[in-house]
Design a binder for these strands. Structure first.
Lengths: 217, 217
DNA sequence: CCGAAATCTGAACGCCGTCAAGATTTTCCC
DNA sequence: GGGAAAATCTTGACGGCGTTCAGATTTCGG
């Protein structure tokens, strides 16, 4: 009675906080055992409501996924944005990459949905989704513009994005498990990820040929 | 009559080539519209067979996916292996990366399954799957060993793998669509991919500090 | 040639997403 | 305050899915 709605067998007809509860259940499910286990019915079950209830908040399953993906891109952008602006470009780029990978490992469910097959920011009718995705990429790009000639900014940005995205994906899917141990090293993944980013920064700095006077765009 | 079994309304009770037909239908489906559209029933339908037939060849859906994934890793390994061994290490690594991305774009269905969430080479009971995955990684690693000190081989290998994997994934999912056009360039993706690999090779060669005399491992 | 193994069918089960119609609660305006 | 309108949730149904199982059909080895 004191707390109105939270526990599973709720007292009132209305849930009171269903949208948030469904989102939480969804990310929980994906983090537990992959997005294949994510079903609207199971989310509804965990929230203690009927199977048809989610439709009123998200329309359909894709709606829920796009909502989570939007949160994911916004998380990503704000994490990357809040890296220290005082750092030299290569160091800040490295910090951004670290933020990217850390986000993936911290919120695996959200990350997997955000970059899952079903999410197509370029095709979706969801305007916030596209905006959030472009904002994250823009952050990376404007930082790259400080260390590369204008003609190389795009390819360098895509290169860095690809690397951190690939690293995050491989780590999250534990696809480096057998490979690493098969190579004789039993280092934990957090360490391996850091070493890879070290190497990336080193390679990045080794190609310093830009003119920092021309901010380019 | 002349050809025994191929067309949809087959004449005999037995299909004759069902396993291959199901694999073909599966990759076709995923290439068409994502792995969400891949269903055993639809594969069976396209092969002109009852919904329960696939179970006798693959056990269940995961069995079919693991079979495709094994083919994918073997494709990948043989594509990478058949790059020119006469090239200098950095150039051959670049060729391997190009083979990786090209494989993804040429066989999108197979690639998506191979690196999809459901495939866990490190956990699967499928021995061929794990072997094929390790072989592909080993190729990359032994080539990296020619240009890096032993202590840096692992991280450099993971870095390269991450980059090409991320690039292939982002290209395949058309996730660079809005970003590229939003950046003012309308270059086709094949070109962008090549430029990114150019940049990667450049960065790789800029950090030449290894002793090629010590093959490491 | 015949029995065993391989291959495929048909029917069923439970789960899924989704929709439509109705019940219940809240909100909001008069 | 009170009552219509909107928001929220339930119930029941539909078709599609993966999977299982008993049985029909074909192939193959001895």
């Amino acid at each position: 009675m004191s707390s109105p709605a939270r526990p599973k067998p709720r007292a009132s007809y209305h849930h009171g906080n269903l949208k948030a509860a469904l989102l939480a259940a969804a990310e929980e499910l994906i983090a537990e055992s992959g997005s294949a286990q994510l079903t609207l019915r199971e989310c509804a079950r965990r929230a203690g409501v009927s199977p048809a209830a989610p439709a009123h908040h998200f329309g359909n399953l894709l709606g829920l996924l796009e909502h989570i993906a939007t949160l994911g891109f916004e998380d990503l952008a704000s994490d990357m944005e809040s890296t220290q602006t005082s750092l030299p470009p290569a160091a800040r780029l490295r910090a951004m990459g670290e933020a990217y990978v850390r986000f993936a490992l911290r919120s695996p469910g959200r990350f997997r949905v955000t970059f899952g097959e079903k999410i197509r920011p370029s095709e979706s009718a969801n305007e916030k989704l596209r905006a959030a995705a472009e904002r994250a990429f823009g952050l990376l790009e404007s930082e790259v513009a400080r260390i590369r000639k204008p003609a190389q900014v795009l390819q360098q940005t895509v290169l860095l994005w690809s690397t951190v995205h690939g690293l995050a994906t491989l780590l999250l899917d534990q696809r480096l498990n057998t490979l690493v141990s098969a190579s004789g090293s039993g280092a934990p993944f957090e360490t391996l990820g850091r070493e890879v980013l070290d190497q990336l920064q080193r390679m990045c700095e080794a190609v310093q040929e830009a003119d920092p006077e021309e901010p380019a765009v």
